[in-house]
């Protein structure tokens, strides 16, 4: 892999677990998947960031790894709110669900959402990154 070419410029990781955010950042950086990793500790904050930067195209992430099980607002709740964001935001962001849930129902629900393009099981590994669609 070319060390100078990143798959994505900016990747947001939405996860309540610090260890997962830490690991994601390490893996994504190590495998040159993202030039910049934007860890966010809750869906609420993620929405806040997106909403704040909806006019600032450069600040918006190209891809979002979204956990499902999070306190207060879970991944699916986030998707409901995400729907209300302007098209400019939604057009730029690709959403990949990253969860430890093995429930087929969760996978099905996620894949039926028009903004979700993939569903990955934790932990995030190099092999799994290869499966993620290229921009």
């Amino acid at each position: 892999m070319d060390s100078n070419s990143f798959n994505y410029e900016k990747v947001m990781v939405v996860d309540d677990a610090e260890i997962d955010r830490f690991l994601a950042k390490k893996v994504l950086t190590k495998h040159a998947f993202a030039r910049e990793v934007l860890p966010v500790d809750s869906a609420v904050n993620a929405l806040g960031y997106l909403s704040e930067n909806q006019e600032n195209k450069d600040a918006l992430p190209d891809l979002i790894f979204l956990d499902i099980n999070m306190p207060r607002m879970n991944g699916f709740d986030f998707l409901e709110e995400y729907k209300k964001l302007p098209e400019s935001v939604k057009k730029k962001c690709i959403i990949v669900m990253l969860s430890s849930s093995l429930l087929p129902e969760d996978r099905e629900l996620a894949m039926n959402n028009p903004y979700v393009c993939q569903f990955l099981n934790k932990p995030l590994t190099a092999d799994k990154l290869k499966e993620v669609v290229n921009p």
């Binding site: 677990a17 260890i19 690991l23 099980n69 430890s100 093995l102 934790k122 932990p123 590994t125």
Partner: peptide, 21 residues
């Protein structure tokens, strides 16, 4: 079960990452 599994997945991920390092 689910809540137990989530941190395990995290640990496994870290082990794999450390292994590669």
């Amino acid at each position: 079960s689910h809540d137990l599994r989530a941190p395990l997945a995290s640990v496994l991920g870290l082990i794999e990452y450390t292994t590669s390092e």
